[in-house]
């Protein structure tokens, strides 16, 4: 098996000296979609924030393409190709959809063909091209957040709860779009508490419980695991 594209090794992270994520190790191979599932408060967001550089990990390593990027600033991580879509989206509310997308490619000025690719995936964004991001609905904002991340031509797309604030219908639409990206070969790491959706997308999954990896396996293994079924699938 070849070297994974993204590898977390013994990652610890937390707030005010109090670790929330303990000794997490996981890996994502190129072209793979991996889900980290867990309930609210399990430490999923903290883990992703520590990877993308929004907060420094307290211990451990994050290897991206063989280089340790743990502790790098967020803008460096993003430019190197690991692009994070947070649950709060962090769009630029007083900029148009188009400007948000253009900034996604920062520091480059993207060719219009790249914008068109995003518009092909989310035709809705094309319709709203000149609308301010702050005035859009939750579903549209989610599309824009993913679209903006794609503008950076990411090698790994990390998403935190992409279904936050979305109706079940919109949530599954969002996952359909992610499936399209996966099929096109994009490497995806998604943290999600809506386990059926996440396991529907992912090749493999990890269960994060109280900040530790409890269980890991293929999506099918996890779906059929009695513990997972009981805790997260309600059966």
């Amino acid at each position: 098996m070849s070297e994974p594209l993204l590898k977390l090794d013994g990652l610890c992270a937390g707030y005010l000296g109090q670790d929330v994520v303990h000794d997490v190790s996981l890996s994502v191979a190129e072209g793979e979609a991996v889900a980290v599932i867990g309930s609210n408060g399990a430490g999923k967001t903290t883990m992703l924030r520590a990877v993308c550089g929004l907060m420094p990990p307290s211990r451990g390593s994050v290897y991206f393409d063989g280089t340790d990027i743990a502790g790098d600033k967020a803008h460096r991580v993003s430019r190197s190709g690991v692009v994070y879509v947070p649950a709060e989206r962090h769009l630029f509310p007083q900029m148009s959809v188009k400007e948000n997308l253009i900034l996604g490619a920062y520091p480059k000025r993207p060719p219009s063909s790249q914008l068109d690719q995003v518009f092909d995936l989310f035709p809705r964004l094309k319709e709203r091209e000149s609308q301010h991001a702050g005035t859009m609905s939750g579903g549209e904002q989610q599309m824009l957040a993913v679209g903006r991340a794609l503008m950076a031509a990411p090698r790994v797309l990390m998403l935190d709860e992409p279904t936050t604030g979305l109706s079940p219908l919109l949530a599954s639409e969002a996952y359909n779009a992610l499936a399209e990206l996966r099929n096109a070969g994009l490497t995806i790491l998604v943290a999600e508490q809506q386990v059926p959706l996440a396991l529907g997308l992912a090749d493999r999954g990890y269960v994060l419980d109280h900040g530790r990896i409890g269980l890991t396996g293929t999506a099918d293994d996890l779906r059929n695991d009695p513990g997972v079924r009981k805790a997260y699938l309600g059966v």
């Binding site: 993308c52 550089g53 929004l54 600033k73 967020a74 803008h75 993003s78 430019r79 692009v83 994070y84 947070p86 989206r89 962090h90 769009l91 630029f92 509310p93 007083q94 900029m95 900034l103 996604g104 920062y106 520091p107 903006r148 991340a149 950076a152």
Partner: peptide
Amino acid sequence: RSVIQDENGARLVGV
């Protein structure tokens, strides 16, 4: 402008 509007968002796009 991106930093003024959302600093974390700006960092995430590489600013």
